[in-house]
């Protein structure tokens, strides 16, 4: 309707708009929409890049769910990683924020120190922690031996400890954006809530549980969701540090996807894996929004 009434000037404005937005419009088509459609199609094909894709229906999905020996293993590893890492990282960064939330002498220096590890990522992070976890000469085990643990774990070289090792190293990076977000959230809590609670004789835990947590529940919730999504996508650490081993104990979902795509050249299978991950992530996110989300916002909005 409105288009008909567009004046000459309005048409000019619209054209300018399209021109300004054209980098994204082109980018979205070429690097977004077309690949998404192609990926759906490839997931229904056998495709090794060299020969044209051959349509095989749902065969890739059937293979993954019923025959593949590594599919469930990689899901198990990724869920294990996520279930332990997310609460550790979210609560860890909250505790860190609580340490430096208020202005105190030296607090700015400490904040900087907490933030610094979070800018180390990818390959450098993996190589550093590979050395930290070295069973004989790494700092972690030297430290454990110094406090009397004679036979500390073999960490990345042990089937049992490889995943915990990767989860625990995540604690080094908790002082980044997450901490900043929590600091802002904590500073936003009205002081009088704490003061009146203290007058009523409420202890540290009670104040934390009944004032802090509800007041920042929306941040907790959003960070948990983003953290789950990023945990599902863990790749570089496993690729560099263990290459999935020992005995597939760190074969995470994305490593499995990478292996299928770029080692085996099973592009169809890899695309199917990508879609399963997408749907899985979507379901988990929707579930959390439905079950937890409504309560979170209600509680957060109430005290205002």
């Amino acid at each position: 309707m409105r288009n008909k009434r567009l004046s000459r000037e309005g048409r000019r404005e619209a054209l300018t708009g399209f021109l300004f937005a054209s980098p994204w419009l082109v980018g979205f088509l070429v690097f977004g929409l077309v690949p998404i459609l192609l990926s759906m199609y490839y997931s229904l094909c056998r495709y090794d890049v060299l020969r044209p894709p051959m349509f095989i229906g749902l065969e890739n999905y059937r293979y993954l769910f019923t025959e593949s020996s590594t599919f469930y293993k990689s899901i198990y590893n990724t869920l294990y990683y996520t279930v332990f890492r997310v609460p550790l990282v979210v609560l860890g960064s909250l505790l860190l924020a609580m340490l430096v939330e208020r202005q105190r002498p030296g607090v700015n220096v400490v904040r900087t120190i907490y933030y610094l590890p979070s800018i180390v990522s990818g390959v450098a992070l993996s190589v550093i922690w590979l050395w930290m976890y070295n069973p004989q000469h790494g700092l972690v085990n030297e430290g454990l031996r110094a406090i009397g643990i004679a036979t500390p774990p073999l960490w990345l070289e042990s089937e049992t400890w490889s995943k915990p090792a990767m989860i625990l190293m995540g604690l080094w990076s908790i002082g980044g954006g997450r901490m900043i977000v929590f600091i802002a959230g904590l500073n936003g809590i009205p002081r009088h809530l704490y003061e009146s609670a203290e007058i009523d004789g409420a202890g540290w835990w009670v104040r934390f549980r009944h004032i802090t947590i509800p007041q920042i529940s929306s941040i907790l919730f959003l960070l948990t969701i983003t953290e789950i999504i990023t945990s599902f996508q863990v790749f570089t650490e496993a690729y560099i540090m263990t290459n999935g081993g020992p005995v597939d104990s760190t074969l995470f979902y994305n490593l499995e996807l990478y292996n299928k795509a770029f080692l085996d050249y099973e592009m169809g299978l890899a695309s199917a894996l990508a879609w399963i991950l997408f749907v899985g992530t979507l379901l988990v996110t929707l579930f959390l929004f439905k079950v937890v989300g409504s309560r979170v916002y209600y509680e957060a909005a109430k005290p205002e």
């Binding site: 404005e13 077309v34 994305n254």
Partner: peptide, 27 residues
């Protein structure tokens, strides 16, 4: 700038932020 489809396309843009990069790696 006012241009037709702008607000809808902005939602599309937000949606692409949520898309896991794995989906487009192979294509």
């Amino acid at each position: 700038i006012q241009w037709p489809g702008r607000d809808f396309l902005f939602i599309v843009l937000l949606a692409t932020m949520m898309l896991p990069p794995q989906v487009t790696i192979v294509p």
